[in-house]
Design a protein around this nucleic acid. Structure first.
Length: 264
DNA sequence: ATGGTAGTAAAACTA
C-alpha cells in the first residue's frame, strides 16, 4: 500500500509471455498493489513466476492448454487461493476463475467464456457461467462486506459501452440475454467502479479488435473489462480509469489496463 | 463493409 492509497488493475494480456516486459514495466510505473490478468495462455509449468518474483511480486495462476488462463500479481502475498466457481467446474473453468484475499480484500478474477455466437452451445455455457457466478456470490460472499469482482467479463453492459450498439445487438458480448445475466449479478450488490466515476461518458473502451483497420483512432472499441465492488469498497474508491497510454507500446494486447484506486 | 490480425502450437482454432 502506498500511503493510504491502494490500487487494483485488470488486464487481458492475450499471452502473458508475449506481454511480460510491458507488464513488468507498467507495474512499476503505475504502482499498483494488485493486477488481475486474463488470457495468460500459459500452462502452469510455463508460467513466468521467477520473473515476477525477481521484480518483487507474488503471483498465483492457473492455466491449461489453449487460450484461457488467469493470474493475480500482487505486492503482498495472496491468501485463501482457490480456482474455479463450484462443483460443476471443468478443468478449463479453473483457468477462468481465481479467488484469493489480498490486503484483507476478497478478490474474484474471472475470464468469462466469450460465447462464440448466440446460436452456439458456448453461448449457453456463458449464460450458465454468469448464473453459477451469481450463486457463488450468494453462497460465499455478502453485499455488505468487501468484495472485488474484476476481469474480462465479456459483456458490454450498456449501449454506451459499444461503439455501434445497433450493429452488435446480437453479438455475444452485447446480446440482451447476456446483459440481463450481468444485471442480475449486479443487482446482488455490486457497483461498476469505472462507470461510477465516468457517468454518461461515451468512447471509453478497454478492448479493440485486432482485425479492424484503425480501431483505436476511430474509437471502435468495447468496454468489456470491469472492476466491480460491493458497497463498503465502492465507498472507498476515489478514482477509476482506463490506461490508454499503456497501448503505446510494441505489440500491445487487444485489451488495455483498467485501474481502480482506493483510499482506506 | 461482414473482411481483417494475433496467439497457441504445430493444423486449425479462439478471440
Amino acid at each position: 500500500m502506498n500511503d493510504d492509497h491502494w490500487r487494483v488493475a485488470t488486464f487481458n494480456a492475450n499471452s502473458i509471455r508475449t506481454r511480460l516486459p510491458q507488464i513488468l514495466d507498467w507495474l512499476e510505473r503505475t504502482d499498483v498493489d494488485v493486477l488481475a490478468v486474463q488470457e495468460t495462455k500459459v500452462q502452469n509449468r510455463e508460467f513466468p513466476l521467477d520473473e515476477f518474483r525477481r521484480a518483487g511480486f507474488y503471483a498465483v495462476f492457473y492455466g491449461v492448454k489453449g487460450h484461457s488462463g488467469v493470474a493475480v500479481i500482487s505486492r503482498r502475498e495472496p491468501q485463501q487461493v482457490r480456482f474455479g466457481l463450484d462443483q460443476e467446474d471443468e478443468e478449463e473453468d479453473k483457468a477462468r476463475a481465481l479467488r484469493c484475499v489480498i490486503d484483507e480484500v476478497p478478490i474474484l478474477n474471472t475470464y468469462v467464456p466469450q460465447g462464440r455466437d448466440i446460436q452456439s452451445p458456448e453461448f449457453q455455457r456463458k449464460l450458465r457461467w454468469f448464473a453459477r457466478l451469481r450463486a457463488l456470490l450468494e453462497r460465499e460472499y455478502a453485499p455488505d462486506e468487501p468484495l472485488l469482482w474484476l476481469g474480462d467479463l465479456n459483456v458490454a453492459p450498456e449501449p454506451i459501452d459499444v461503439y455501434d450498439p445497433k450493429r452488435f445487438k446480437d453479438h455475444v458480448d452485447f446480446h440482451p440475454a447476456v446483459r440481463q445475466a450481468f444485471r442480475d449479478i449486479m443487482a446482488w450488490g455490486l457497483v461498476d467502479l469505472f462507470r461510477r466515476h465516468h457517468p454518461n461518458e461515451p468512447n471509453h473502451y478497454t478492448y479493440y479488435d485486432y482485425r479492424a483497420k484503425n480501431p483505436v483512432e476511430e474509437n471502435k472499441g468495447w468496454r468489456v473489462d470491469h472492476i466491480l465492488a460491493t458497497a463498503p469498497l465502492a465507498e472507498r474508491c476515489i478514482n477509476a480509469w482506463i490506461d490508454t497510454q499503456a497501448r503505446l507500446v510494441e505489440r500491445p494486447s487487444d485489451h488495455t489496463f483498467l485501474v481502480a484506486e482506493f483510499s482506506f
